[in-house]
Design a protein around this nucleic acid. Sequence first.
DNA 1: CGCGGATTTGAATAGTATCAATACAGGTGG
DNA 2: CCACCTGTATTGATACTATTCAAATCCGCG
Lengths: 242, 242
Amino acid sequence: MSSRKDIHNSDIPILCQSCEARHKGICGALEPDQLVELARHTRQVRAKSGEELIGDTEEVKSYANVISGVVKLTKMLSDGRQQVIGLQFAPDFLGRPFAEESRLSAEAASGVNLCKIPKSALESMIKSSPELEHRLLMQTLKELDEARDWMVTLGRKTASEKVASFLYLIATHIDPTKNMDEVDSIKFDLPLTRVDIADFLGLTVETISRQLTKLRKDGVIEIENNRSFFVPSMERLEDRCG
Amino acid sequence: MSSRKDIHNSDIPILCQSCEARHKGICGALEPDQLVELARHTRQVRAKSGEELIGDTEEVKSYANVISGVVKLTKMLSDGRQQVIGLQFAPDFLGRPFAEESRLSAEAASGVNLCKIPKSALESMIKSSPELEHRLLMQTLKELDEARDWMVTLGRKTASEKVASFLYLIATHIDPTKNMDEVDSIKFDLPLTRVDIADFLGLTVETISRQLTKLRKDGVIEIENNRSFFVPSMERLEDRCG
DNA sequence: CGCGGATTTGAATAGTATCAATACAGGTGG
DNA sequence: CCACCTGTATTGATACTATTCAAATCCGCG
């Protein structure tokens, strides 16, 4: 719709011109002039793997768009048990709109590029652009769907099915440019350590390891260097997901 | 804000006048004249316990507000394993906005009163009322927060902590009129069978039963007639939630 | 090459599930 | 009003899955 206007690239901010998320996520809602307005407040930020992006019970001062990489969302029980409650890939929106403080932690799982925007700037733009709020609603609904799908995995799948489901999730999300309908075999690097995977699946590291070797011995996956995986047949992997 | 206008009750529809959800949930966003417009399409419906409200992969033709009672949301794996992914209490909104078909099942867990509105009617009202979409966003964010909290329960808590967490959830939500900050002991009827509880917690019926007797023997709860529970100290129950 | 963190493997244990039997509650009809 | 009947819940015995604790191996990197 608005892509025609973008032919005059001089109208839109330089940073946005080369941004993969330009037409997706939140930004897709914006006309060039709104984008200019937004870009006056945004700032591209790089974060190294392991860097904390948002702390639990921390006051939220800004939101962000994930431009590249993977962000890990976690919650902790008082005694230290941890649960990964979601992963965010480009071009997902990062942050809990309209909350005073965060009720979860966000950490860069891999190297990450973010486009940050101050809370106040975004919230005032929302007031003038219903379409922006609509995008936010769509993103939140998507995350809710994903959370509910994962609840089934956590509550009702076996360890082996859980690990297969995790690999399936990563394989289908790690490369936002790829159309998964056309792909049957795929190679990718895991953005998470075994500990993180365990915390995502509600299991222990040892169980993750054992199930991975089992999947490898069954020929469902090939493991090259601990982190780099190859799935010869996505169909066969899907069969293992329960 | 708009409550002053409601003094002239004749302005708002009779059904809405006595509706507990009038100032909450979605309806709270509406001015009297919008409420009149909305009420032209709504229809109050009663559903008996166990009645299916929305089927999986069913085309969604209407949304609803929960006026009273509890609605159970579930998903199933292909082999029949079931997971309850959420409970909805008054005045929650029921239905997945902007989806062609439902990806989950909804069932009346207790006797339920709903205020139904056709999909098309709500969606056209959204277009003219950004405040309505804002309410929808807030509701969705609330559900996302709840889903993520529950993921921690499913992934990282023991059977005993899960059951305590479930009882805590019910005790704090079953009566929308009660302010839980002021309450330390409470009596309530469970809206779910043991099977449903098991499906909510990712456990078996037998485990639920055993953990309930354990909580009873430890004096954390008193069970009267299978379904009717008494919690002498919410604080002590909370301590069991992990 | 050697160090430190991450991962894998092994053996023993604990926590839930499973299978089977019994008890209970609520509703029905004699 | 009671005896029965059915679905729901509890209890018991056993099996199995995943955890725990311990040790060995692998990997990236200075």
